[in-house]
Amino acid sequence: MYGTGILKGLGVTLRHFFQTYADDLRWAGKGGRYYNDEAFAVRQSPEAQGVITVFYPEEKLAVPERFRFVPFLVTDDPPPGQRWGHDWCTSCGICAKVCPPQCIWIERGKLPNGRPKPEPVNFFIDIDICMNCGYCAEFCPFDAIKMDHDYELAGYDRSTAHIHDKARLSKPLSYWQEISPKRAAAEEFGRQMAESAKTKKKGPDEEAAPGMPNDVARQLPYRGAQY
């Protein structure tokens, strides 16, 4: 019959309409549907029915560990009284070389005798050029540059704020462990593994290193193949 197609379609809309209220009822006794962590988790999962809205400034959708926004530099946890600890960056320049839009500038340090010093004097990232691809973090052999999760960077000015210098970029290791705990742990594991492999090689008849367990390896790019 002519018109059944339209009616069916309207039925779908009606179903969606009721689903939303059904969800309200479902959570009525359990702290409500909104501003409720438990309900929020369900609302954002594949089981979500009805409205899935995130009430952004109040409720924030967590970003996954691998999330990449603009990069930052990892330093040691600062000793008391200081803002930063020791830089992990050795200014080897791999990130600057692999960066697709070439938005990284590194000024390598110099020792008094003129030889290069494995430490950056300056480190700039122009976030107006950065494409958040994550190559710098992926190819850094020292785990010294990582992709930040802080996306709330909106501002009224770009002439100065959008070139991040070393002071702006440096963040302590504990920050990285906080935003990306599993991956930071896996990296630590990988570094130790590489370290022990290095020492073991010296031994005459040592077995090859056992390799990474699966649940560690899967946290890392290439399953930790670079370690």
Binding site: V63, V70, Y151
Partner: peptide
């Protein structure tokens, strides 16, 4: 675009996630 128009808010990111955009709109 600020070479041609006055810009009020800049939202960095490539691309900014929806939450980042809302953050810019709140700004």
């Amino acid at each position: 675009i600020d070479k041609f128009l006055p810009v009020d808010v800049y939202v960095p990111g490539c691309p900014p996630t929806p939450q980042a955009l809302i953050n810019g709109l709140i700004a």
